[in-house]
Design a protein around this nucleic acid. Structure first.
Ligand code: FES
Ligand code: FES
Lengths: 151, 151
DNA sequence: CTCAATCCGTACCGGATCGGTCCCATATGC
DNA sequence: GCATATGGGACCGATCCGGTACGGATTGAG
């Protein structure tokens, strides 16, 4: 299904939190605050750290914080960190030889769609995700934006 | 995983075919031509017909054809016809009351992301998908487009 | 009128993936 | 030393996906 996994869902919650306050926060702490499965949260944070999106401090008083400003963290990165390499369909990779490239009418079309999805996610930054909502900017179905203005 | 199901994958192949030639084609015929699982192809075509994207002709010499010009068929429609209603995460619906709306920092942000995905798919038409590839228009990672020009 | 081709609806199944849990090792501050 | 943290896995049940199958309805051809 065309759907974000729970890991990414939780990841966005955690990253939003870390983007808004610049203090470090521990896994236990955040899991409690948002009432989310502690073990999962721990795993998600580990993965984000491994991918270089977060940096961690071990030991007592340790925790996590963003490795970079939220403006330089893309949705594509987050998704790939938590779900593995992104590919809309099987035959999208570095010059994958498809079964019947000659006869398949979507060898190119499907790569175009894949590329567009990827670009879309690569351009959408954590800062935008958090900021748009904070400022009440919601895109409508026809692409028209309504800004409620920041407070 | 953020991935198109096989049904949509096959659907795009079939729709591309139907968009390029305006003759009707039967399920059996297409399954054979592209060497795809006949039963699945049949089911996919049924679903697309039920959603009003294709029209069918029964009986001998019957088959399927597009219900509308390819320019008026969006990727969003195709996906929703074959995978059911599109929602990136659970808490995206018509005013779903989330568990802890007050405390969750992504109630709005995640809806923004969802909305953007949906708009993106709603604006991408079958005609564009087929046409872009035919004309060699491939979007690069930074959004710059190279057109090889139609032949 | 009969028959084959074709669509229609729906049920079924094995395997992959997901959501979630758990454990033990390591590092650090008090 | 010990409580608090992260690090790196393995593990399991529920769900979803990819694929198959079957009986029924409709239509054109001979
Ligand atoms: S099989 Fe790869 S594009 Fe069709
Ligand atoms: S629970 Fe619905 S947005 Fe967080």
């Amino acid at each position: 299904m065309l759907r974000l996994s729970k890991k990414v869902d939780y990841g966005l919650i955690l990253l939003s939190r870390l983007a808004q306050r610049s203090e470090t926060a521990s896994a236990r702490e955040m899991a409690a605050k948002y009432d989310l499965p502690p073990s999962m949260i721990a795993n998600v944070l580990k993965a984000l750290t491994g991918a270089g999106i977060l940096v961690s401090t071990r030991g007592a008083q340790g925790g996590y914080e963003l490795a970079r400003p939220a403006g330089r963290i893309s949705l594509a990165e987050i998704v790939e960190a938590l779900e593995g390499p992104f590919s809309l369909v099987d035959c999208v990779g570095d010059e994958v030889i498809c079964r019947y490239t000659e006869v398949c009418p979507t060898h190119d079309p499907i790569r175009v769609v894949h590329q567009r999805f990827h670009d879309f996610m690569a351009k959408l930054t954590l800062a935008e995700i958090v900021g748009d909502a904070r400022f009440g900017t919601l895109q409508t179905a026809d692409g028209h934006e309504k800004a409620h203005l920041p407070g």
